[in-house]
Design a protein around this nucleic acid. Structure first.
Lengths: 109, 109
DNA sequence: TTTAGTACCTTGCGATACAAGGTATCTTAT
DNA sequence: ATAAGATACCTTGTATCGCAAGGTACTAAA
């Protein structure tokens, strides 16, 4: 097992949460998301992001609108739907829970 | 998308870390692990745990020894190998990193 | 000797992350 | 005009994970 794989595994499922956290503030298109996550030290690539955005859209958690760009083709700006905001609150709670769990395991036993 | 699925997804990759945190303190066999994780509010089932333990063993991060039980068949007690302790330190670092990432995304943007 | 409990493991399925490759649009330089 | 490069979107195939369900083996009690 290489460390990269462990790290990769630990990241699984966190991406969805991180992306929705980003969109909580403002609409973003794919490259926005990739860059902002990179600034927060979370690497994500196109092949991961696009299917994920499509899935969240399909599940009604995200919507999008096309916006013209001054420097290339139009962009899909994704936004949180009301349903997505509810889901994000649940993810917040799940995140707190996991933090508690790890904290317990680090101290107890 | 149901909330259970989100939560389930967020847990992915955390299991490995949590199990190694448990074994940092003392050898455990499967049912020990299941129960102690449950006490820390992390649910894991046999069908998940056994393949995971086998994989960590195969990768050299865990070893095990058979111990007799007074109340049934013998048990496989798993322990962290030195290599596993190194890997656990890397997972600790990865965990810190992810916490930082989420903290940044919660505040910024 | 049968039954219940404990402990270990495997198989098949759905979902995810990622590498690699593909299509369409827009701008710029020739 | 047009060719080349940049930007932006998306799909396919592979590996891995978590989990439900089912299976095997050992022990103790009825």
């Amino acid at each position: 097992m290489n460390p990269d794989n462990s790290k990769s595994q630990m990241r699984k499922g966190m991406l969805e949460y991180c992306i929705m956290l980003l969109l909580r503030r403002q609409p973003c298109y794919a490259n926005d998301i990739i860059q902002k996550l990179r600034e927060a030290e979370m690497i994500v690539v196109e092949g991961t992001l696009y299917p994920l955005l499509s899935r969240l859209k399909r599940d009604g958690l995200l919507g999008y609108e096309w916006r013209e760009s001054t420097q290339g083709p139009p962009r899909k700006y994704y936004v949180l739907t009301p349903e997505g905001q509810d889901a994000l609150q649940q993810l917040d709670a799940g995140w707190e829970e996991i933090q508690r769990t790890v904290a317990i395991l680090k101290v107890k036993n």
